[in-house]
Design a protein around this nucleic acid. Sequence first.
DNA 1: ATAGGGTTTGAACCTAGGTTGAAGGTTAGG
DNA 2: CCTAACCTTCAACCTAGGTTCAAACCCTAT
Lengths: 121, 121
Amino acid sequence: MKIGEIANAAGVTTSRIRFYEKRGIIAPAARGPNGYRDYPEDLIALLRFIEQAQGLGFTLREIASVEVRSGPHPISCAEAIGLLAGKRDAVDALIAEAEERKRRIDSLISELQKSQAKSEN
Amino acid sequence: MKIGEIANAAGVTTSRIRFYEKRGIIAPAARGPNGYRDYPEDLIALLRFIEQAQGLGFTLREIASVEVRSGPHPISCAEAIGLLAGKRDAVDALIAEAEERKRRIDSLISELQKSQAKSEN
DNA sequence: ATAGGGTTTGAACCTAGGTTGAAGGTTAGG
DNA sequence: CCTAACCTTCAACCTAGGTTCAAACCCTAT
């Protein structure tokens, strides 16, 4: 498959695929006699996996480090669980921070509403 | 006060203050006869306010747009409440998204744990 | 007078995740 | 054969919020 075809199939842009290759997130593509990149269909799944992982909060750097090791065979279940657990903790921390922020905003609002009630400002 | 003094007092770097001035977040400073920036003590409070607002999730662009109008007199209570309410909604949306993300991660983890239990992989 | 610290400017650099453009080679259809 | 739509590379640009550097100027103490 040519880059445009696979980009279409996976729902990403061609520039993004080239960018991933340059950054080492995906392996360099095989080339046809004309120099065009030639992809196996498998790559569609990988591109979707990358999007999913990003949606779960993994950075491209993290995704790449997993990809590197999963070249011949996939990473172990235990390893994957460890990565996911770490990410869940990070998301938990993010939620806690956001909730704290929300509390501060709310208390500021109610403070302002009180002072507004006193003097019609 | 010179830039280093006020930076120290407010707990920010000098480069950050110059950056704020360049971006229009704070007004251009008065200059002494030697060309050095000369700040009133008031600016300490403003710098702290900026940090607080950032901590509440306001971008510098948003902060600047408030600052611009509050030159002569501060913005009204009602206006401030409106801004804060908008930001609280954004934080709410962020929390909801993060919780959804966490749910997806958790379900992936428990799926993996099931398949791990079946075959010691 | 000289060393050290502080200050000035502008420009370049940084992370993250890409997009956009220029200049050129290729391929398919009519 | 010509044109449109692909593909190639490399480099520059983008947001956000700054930091770092270079070259020069200023001030104070010894």
